[in-house]
């Protein structure tokens, strides 16, 4: 048996982390689920290289890494339009391709979306922490030494478990397109929705918001819409004096908090699990992957949806996975 297969990080990219489908079960202790922000893209990449859906891959945001492989490997890149290159030669996206020992994987400039997913047959082999290999950088936990990759890191690759789909490309109608300008994020009003005036309940959904530079795995901040006005109240004991304060509570994934009533923040996979800001509602589960592909300065709108609509959207996401399954196998 040869030495363990690995790749060396020549350049780390902006913030490249090891992610799988996450670490549920510890949110009550402040440990968020983590995992790929665009789960569909990671699952698609894993299926292309013959991995189980939940195998660990790399999530590269805005700028791809440069990786040098010590052994032959089958790789697929999905998600953002950030074309992979093998020793400088461009390779197709959403396609399983072969890398030979000694070759270098790099990336062209980001053209659309925000996060590319790199799956390697056998998966990224870092220790599991509480059942997942996902990186939670805020807590220094999981992934490769609890942090984003750095130049010089030697990262192990696991043994392939299933046959890869070498040369197969997932067709465009099966992929999810990168979010266009003015993309709608569907949200269910609720939680502390009653804290803002009727007029602000209207403006929140009418206004166009743009993604602020402070957009990361913890949450996406938006700005540019009208500030929200609050229904007057006597501050409840323990809440704090600002009208946007509440007695510190849990924060659902996808919940939309608006500190001071000015800039909404949608919490994502590395969410802070709780705090003292009121929330106007929650982005539905079906649109969470989409948020992971939004770029700073991109305009979006929130669209009000009820539970029935949210469940229908969830079924459509399931159908998207089914189409992937029909095309490439589950």
């Amino acid at each position: 048996m040869a030495d363990a297969a690995m790749f060396e990080v020549v350049k780390p990219g902006l913030a490249t982390t090891v992610q799988d489908l996450g670490r549920p079960g510890y949110y009550h202790l402040g440990l968020p689920i983590s995992g790929a922000m665009d789960r569909f893209a990671l699952i698609a990449a894993n299926r292309l290289v013959g991995n189980p859906d939940g195998a660990a891959g790399l999530e590269a945001v805005f700028l791809g890494p440069v990786l040098k492989f010590s052994a032959d490997a089958v790789v697929a890149v999905t998600g953002a339009t950030m074309p992979p290159k093998l020793d400088g030669a461009e390779q197709p996206l959403w396609t399983a391709f072969q890398i030979f020992a000694g070759q270098e994987l790099s990336f062209g400039y980001l053209k659309a979306g925000a996060r590319a997913y790199i799956a390697i047959a056998g998966g990224v082999d870092v220790p599991e922490v509480h059942g997942s290999r996902s990186t939670y950088a805020l807590g220094g936990l999981g992934g490769f030494e609890g942090r984003a990759l750095q130049s010089g890191d030697q990262v192990k690759i696991g043994a392939p478990t299933g046959p890869s789909k070498l040369g197969v490309t997932i067709p465009e109608d099966v992929r999810r397109a990168a979010p266009a300008s003015g993309t709608l994020l569907r949200a269910m009003p609720g939680l502390y929705w009653h804290r803002i005036t009727e007029e602000s309940q209207g403006s929140f959904f009418e206004d166009t918001w743009t993604v602020a530079p402070e957009a990361d795995r913890i949450g996406y901040r938006f700005k540019g819409g009208r500030a929200l006005d609050f229904v007057p109240r006597k501050p409840p004991f323990g809440a704090g004096s600002d009208p946007s304060n509440i007695v510190d509570s849990c924060y659902p994934y996808g919940s939309i908090q608006v500190p001071g009533g000015t800039e909404p923040i949608v919490l994502h996979r590395d969410a802070v699990s709780g705090g003292g800001y009121f929330m106007v509602g929650t982005v539905i589960s079906a649109d969470m992957d989409l948020i992971g592909q939004l770029q700073p300065h991109q305009p979006v709108r929130f669209e009000s949806i009820d539970m029935e609509g949210a469940l229908a959207a969830r079924r459509e996401e399931r159908a998207r996975l089914d189409r992937l399954g029909e095309f490439i196998g589950a």
Binding site: M188, G254, S255
Partner: peptide, 16 residues
């Protein structure tokens, strides 16, 4: 209150 399609949020009291 529902927090989207995957959470139920229960505020036992507004004050601590």
């Amino acid at each position: 209150s529902f927090g989207g399609d995957e959470h139920i949020f229960v505020e036992v009291d507004e004050e601590m």
